[in-house]
């Protein structure tokens, strides 16, 4: 119960205020002057409060969202890693398959028995151009046997043990191969060079050898079967004494990419290279 006229006046004022607001409200809420006034007062506060709430809510939701996204991200990344691993394994197998298919074709083409071997190491110090293969005397691999890949000649077996052999590469100065220029049929002796590539020596002065000409084995050294691709002529110069031509040869094989090779199991006495035989088509 109101205790004084003042208290009753305040109560009435509020009731009147309520009535004014009630009767001044139009058809659309918020159109009345009182409502606008109320909004004007409340809006900044409401905005601030809502803003804070929104931010907190946002942070909260983001946190939960992030936890979910992070989880999802992690699982997706794991899946990507797994797929990448699978892809690289498949690519590796595909490349290996392609290489082995080429080797198999080459093996079928060879008139001589041959055996596939895997490269397991390279020269220990790098001063020599050699590599190691996983076939040795127990597989029938002996020293002096030619080593090839589908692209051409790789080198020659120079040392071997029961399960492993050392192959001296075509680019080693210690290896010489009897060769022939495919177009002109000129002969020469090819040896490696400490610089990149090989050098074809003792080409007759009258030869029409030109850069780009293909060089193949002549079979005259008794080690390499004739007709195996060796490389292409890069440049031609006159030899030191001026009696022969010399040519720089780019090998057909990229030696840093070799992973499997084919060892030609030729007779130790060499291949049949009777005079004139190497000229037969």
């Amino acid at each position: 119960m109101p205790r004084s006229i003042r208290e009753i006046a305040i109560i009435l004022l509020f009731i009147a205020g309520g009535l004014v607001i009630l009767f001044s409200t139009g058809t659309k809420p918020g159109d009345s002057a009182a409502a606008r006034a109320l909004y004007t007062v409340i809006r900044p506060i409401q905005h601030a409060v809502y803003g804070i709430h929104h931010r907190i809510g946002g942070i909260w939701n983001s946190y939960f969202d992030l936890v979910g996204v992070r989880e999802e991200n992690r699982s997706l990344q794991e899946e990507i890693r797994k797929l990448r691993r699978q892809r690289s394994v498949l690519l590796f197998k595909e490349r290996e398959n392609r290489r082995l298919r080429k080797l198999l074709d080459l093996k079928r083409q060879h008139e001589f028995p041959s055996i596939a071997a895997r490269v397991i190491g390279e020269d220990a110090v790098g001063w020599y151009r050699t590599l190691f293969i996983d076939r040795g005397s127990s597989d029938g691999v002996l020293t002096e046997m030619p080593v090839t890949v589908a692209e051409g000649v790789v080198g020659r077996v120079t040392r071997n043990s029961q399960d492993m052999s050392q192959v001296t590469l075509l680019t080693d100065p210690g290896l010489t191969v009897g060769c022939r220029i495919a177009r002109t049929r000129d002969r020469g002796v090819l040896s490696g060079s400490l610089e990149s590539g090989c050098v074809l020596r003792y080409i007759r002065l009258e030869s029409d050898v030109r850069p780009g000409d293909e060089v193949v084995t002549s079979g005259m050294d008794g080690i390499f079967p004739r007709g195996l691709p060796v490389g292409r002529i890069e440049s031609v110069t006159k030899g030191e004494q001026g009696l022969f031509l010399e040519a720089r040869v780019t090998p057909a094989v990229n030696f840093s990419d070799i992973e499997e090779v084919l060892v030609v199991l030729g007779r130790r006495g060499g291949f049949d290279v009777r005079p004139g035989l190497e000229d037969r088509p």
Binding site: G126, P173, G174, S191, S193, L194, E195
Partner: peptide
Amino acid sequence: GVFVVLTRWFAGPLGAGTYAVPAALAK
């Protein structure tokens, strides 16, 4: 390197020219 190149040079032509010097230095 000098030792190796010399022994190889005695064994036969190296076909290295002046390449052997920078290669040995780099190695």
